[in-house]
Design a protein around this nucleic acid. Structure first.
Lengths: 214, 214
DNA sequence: CTCGACATTATTGTCAACAATTCAGTGGCT
DNA sequence: AGCCACTGAATTGTTGACAATAATGTCGAG
């Protein structure tokens, strides 16, 4: 039986990730009690859990608010993701099975089709699926957990990025290189390809910022 | 004013890191109340905080116990540290000031002296200081926080490793290469040197395991 | 009108009592 | 003996009330 606590945590997490609470917005415990339909005790537990995830920030006697992630922080976070996913890609290259290799290939094919057809949303989904599959192949629990946590902190920025015109055209060949390196069971190449890919995401993040403020 | 809560958390963290609670040992809330001199409320808060740090594990309705870190996990954690500290070293190389460069140099000198004099404990302290200084130079908050968290999970293994005979002789030249690369403001070399260094730590961890079980 | 002291309110922090759950030990049954 | 249901102690989960704190509003002096 799953407790109210985990349910409340999941609901609140989904609400924040779904944009129902904007960055900087204050989270009042009493309000959340009604919103989530649980007691204050559970609300507090949920908040402290999400605080550990870096999704909210709590200040003593001043309550909790949705954490605001600046562009600089977003870049830092993505830098960390870059090296971690590089590690994971390298490990995936040493452990991939033939069956998994085919699956990678298929995702690559679907990605190319999606780009050609201009189906951005579909491409974005395939992107998540690809990165997820690679992490599954690697089976690196520690890196995995951290990557997942970091991803949560970036939903907003990632989302904006996915709407950036021209991104797919840039990232598609990068993805294909990653897939190829893993299929060839070449850890160094896989790490390199993954890092190049995410480095280009960082560049795009920075450009996006310049575009907004300039 | 600092609350009982943070005080209790710090005390408990110190107790676990100091080895006063062994891995796997159960943490009974009532006992901790006496031990820490605070109410159960604060004990719970402390436990949930340390759970987020990965130092303890809580199972619903079954209480909390000190997390046991297997050798495999220790290797995983150190792999993550390897890439993160590599990132940090590279960044340090791009930001180091002349003053900081001298400080690095001095630590390197002291390390060499400590090794020659057979002062292991001193060497180990200098080691922490070096890695800390590099992280300070880099100023990468995100990577920093994660590294710090991971380090906490490994205290026991790290400790055993620091007693390993012959380690200083191996790691000293590695440290010197790291220092040199940062002083020369060569990010790639710094990252490479740092990764080589921590890769050798991983090897040592694995050997240690083989030595224990074989 | 502006500023600062004071009162009020909204919100979070803490507690002690109670409910629910797990776990170990007991005793009856086959 | 082996097994199952049961009991009771130990432990954790949860609640609602209250205390402490910060935010807000009010009023008078200058």
């Amino acid at each position: 039986m799953s407790s109210d606590q985990t349910a409340a945590t999941d609901k609140l997490r989904a609400a924040i990730l779904g944009g129902q609470y904007l960055p900087g917005e204050r989270l009042v415990e009493a309000q959340l009690c009604e919103r989530l339909g649980v007691s204050r005790f559970n609300v507090r537990a949920a908040i402290s859990e999400l605080a550990a995830d870096g999704l909210v920030k709590v200040e003593r006697n001043r309550g909790a608010h949705v954490r605001k992630v600046s562009i600089d922080e977003a870049v830092e976070i993505t830098e960390v993701r870059m090296v971690l996913e590089g590690l994971v890609a390298a490990r995936a290259a040493t452990r991939v099975t033939d069956e998994q290799a085919s699956e990678l290939d298929e995702i690559g094919l679907l990605m190319r089709r999606a780009v050609n057809a201009g189906e951005f949303r579909r491409y974005s989904d395939l992107n998540s699926r690809l990165h997820g599959l690679i992490r599954g192949i690697a089976g690196h629990g520690t890196a995995d957990g951290i990557i997942e946590t970091l991803r949560g902190q970036l939903v907003r920025h990632q989302f904006m990025l996915s709407l950036h015109p021209g991104r797919p055209a840039i990232s598609l060949p990068q993805h294909e290189r990653i897939i190829q390196a893993i299929r060839e069971r070449d850890p160094k190449a896989a790490e390199h390809a993954m890092r190049d890919h995410i480095a280009s995401v960082i560049e795009a993040l920075r450009d996006m910022d310049a575009g907004e403020t300039g």
